[in-house]
């Protein structure tokens, strides 16, 4: 008498578990880690075809001129307290 009752409970439970396992196995797997190259730059940023003087080196020169100091502190002369005003004996 207990056996049919048990079967009545077990069969739907087994069916349910089978369904869950089936659907889980069908779920999409996580994508592999991305090792792709960085996204390509917009067309305007891309290097121009080779020329005699690449723009980047000119920009470096512009930056060097911009930071150049006409009052270089290493050339600043010493400053003295003059005259010394040495007392007489």
């Amino acid at each position: 008498m207990n056996r049919p009752k048990l079967l009545i409970l077990l069969i739907p439970a087994a069916a349910f578990i089978s369904l869950v396992v089936f659907f889980i196995s069908r779920l999409p797997r996580p994508a592999p880690a991305v090792t792709s190259s960085p996204p390509s730059r917009p067309k305007a940023d891309q290097a121009l075809p080779d020329t005699v003087n690449p723009p980047s080196s000119l920009q470096i020169l512009v930056d060097q001129i911009a930071v150049f100091k006409t009052n270089d502190s290493t050339l600043t002369p010493p400053s003295f307290d003059i005259p010394l005003q040495i007392p007489s004996e």
Binding site: V52, N53, L61, Q64, I65, F68, T70, D72, L75
Partner: peptide, 23 residues
């Protein structure tokens, strides 16, 4: 002397710009 040094450094920059003008 300081002026001469600074002007020489600026002239060096000017020389570096010359190829860009030519191109």
């Amino acid at each position: 002397t300081r002026n001469q040094i600074i002007k020489a450094r600026l002239a060096n920059f000017q020389n570096q710009l010359a190829p860009y003008i030519d191109a």
